[in-house]
Design a protein around this nucleic acid. Structure first.
Length: 468
DNA sequence: TGAAATGTTGGGGCG
DNA sequence: ACGCCCCAACATTTC
């Protein structure tokens, strides 16, 4: 007498622990673990190359934990699910919700489809601490400012549920085709070699990182996170994005630490919630200015400058260090993300969407809500955004937050021999010092593509043209 | 989760 | 001793 067959549809929840839908499925019957690589409706936001690399390894790791039983397919989720439920005598399908606008719409269609087929569908919250439709102001509208969102919305709500256990017993359906490698997520040319040196992928690795973060790093988090040469940040973002770890696990692990560092980390998780709330309530967030008055902003088209920014050849050392960190590791330290974004949007006057698009392709933690909300935040057109006149000076930022230059020297090795004093502004270094350091501007390292003072002033003028 | 310009203050050098 | 200037160092304001 076999138990009923239930599909667990893995999406951005590639883990066994604290997985509400998987736990429910395991209680309901024999589980067919399913993953569908589906970009069909993603439009301009099809999964980027670095994310695909991560996904490949994350699925491989999950498949191992599932004793090789994970079934993977590529294509339209509506069709694949319809096929599977007719192929098997499935009684139910369970999943954890996603929040990309196109996925929300697709889920609605799949629910209708399943209903007409007489198959039960049940979705759960496995990715957020609070649902965007529950965390609202008292008048029923979504928060537009972070601080009240956090203070009243998050802290005023019931505490996030404690993490759930792994399914105590997981009876898996026999394998029936659909391997991870058939998804062909890895690129043909092996540019991704360096990613493997920078990351350990999968649920076990995510748990290990959380443990290290909480026990060794969190105590200095509030101040340490400003210094990109230290690894005093959580580096949990790709694990969170793919759901190798849940925000509940991160939130509760941090509560064991007392004081302001815990609060600071909780706030970062709340920024993630804020971004998801913005995306849910303003589905155009990835494409349109959240503040319409920015629609008239005089952005510049400059393909040469954009290309130099992408490749870390702007001639501004801190900017180039960040862009090269991104290229080499699929990641960039958060403070440096703000610096390079400010430089693109404010010094080069290139549209934030170009920056978002590049990050989308290069980041292993590319996340539609976080990426869209954060670019709009930097550009000044977002919700509770940095004021447009807050323009980072990459020289000052380097001197303040990379005082011994070790971050900049690591990723811009051709400047490694320059003394600290000129490392962040080689264009001002005396000729003999450059000679001595083996630097030849325009030859071994570019001249700066923008004058920081002059471009700052034109940015302020452009902003002024929008009126108030 | 800025930076630059402008304003204020106070110590020290010096006539 | 005193006033004056200079200029850090810090505070405020403006963009």
């Amino acid at each position: 007498m076999s138990r009923p067959l239930v599909i667990h549809w893995f999406r951005q929840d590639l883990r066994l622990a604290d997985n509400p839908a998987l736990l429910a499925a395991a209680n309901a019957g024999q589980v067919l673990p399913l993953y569908i690589f589906d970009d069909v409706d993603a439009g301009d936001h099809k999964m980027g190359a670095a994310s695909r690399w991560w996904l490949h390894h994350s699925l491989s790791s999950l498949n191992t934990e599932l004793n090789g039983r994970l079934q993977c397919f590529a294509g339209d989720a509506r069709e694949i699910i319809a096929r599977l439920v007719s192929q098997y005598s499935t009684v139910a399908i369970y999943w954890n919700r996603c929040y990309e606008p196109w996925r929300v719409e697709q889920d609605r269609e799949i629910r209708e489809q399943l209903q007409s087929l007489g198959v039960a569908a049940a979705s759960f919250n496995g990715s957020l601490l609070w649902e965007p439709w529950e965390n609202l102001k008292s008048d029923g509208t979504p928060y537009k400012v972070f601080t009240p969102f956090y203070q009243r919305g998050c802290l005023g709500a019931p505490a996030p549920r404690a993490p759930l256990p792994c399914p105590p017993s997981l009876e898996l359906a026999p394998p029936n085709g659909g391997t991870v490698s058939e998804l062909q997520l890895l690129p043909a040319n092996p540019w991704h070699k360096k990613l493997g040196q920078a990351w350990h992928v999968g649920e076990q690795a995510a748990q290990a990182r959380l443990k290290t973060f909480v026990s060794e790093i969190l105590k200095d988090y509030e101040t340490g996170r400003d210094f990109p040469a230290q690894q005093s940040v959580s580096r949990l973002s790709p694990h969170l994005h793919f759901g190798e770890i849940s925000p509940n696990q991160a939130w509760h692990a941090a509560t064991a630490i007392s004081g302001s560092n815990q609060e600071t980390f909780h706030k970062e998780l709340a920024w993630r919630e804020f971004s998801y709330s913005l995306l849910f309530h303003f589905p155009a967030l990835p494409d349109n200015n959240w503040q319409p008055k920015f629609d008239a902003f005089p952005w510049r088209q400059d393909d040469e400058a954009l290309h130099r920014w992408q490749r870390g050849q702007t001639g501004i050392p801190v900017v180039d260090a960040g862009m090269r960190e991104l290229w080499e590791t699929g990641y960039m330290h958060n403070r440096i993300r703000m610096v390079v974004a400010s430089f693109l949007v404010k010094n080069l006057l290139i549209h934030w969407r170009e920056g978002a698009r590049w990050f989308w392709d290069c980041l292993v933690d590319a996340d539609l809500a976080n990426n869209s909300a954060s670019w709009q935040w930097v550009a000044g057109c977002g919700a509770d955004a940095a004021p447009y006149f807050r323009i980072f000076n990459p020289v000052t930022q380097g001197e303040k937050f990379d005082p011994d230059g070790s971050y900049t020297r690591r990723f811009v090795p051709e400047l490694a021999s320059l003394p600290d004093k000129y490392l962040f502004r080689p264009w001002q270094a005396p000729a003999d010092l450059l000679d001595e350091a083996g630097v030849s501007l325009g030859q071994t390292y570019p001249h700066p593509i923008a004058d920081l003072k002059a471009s700052r002033e034109s940015a302020l003028a452009a902003f002024k043209s929008l009126g108030t």
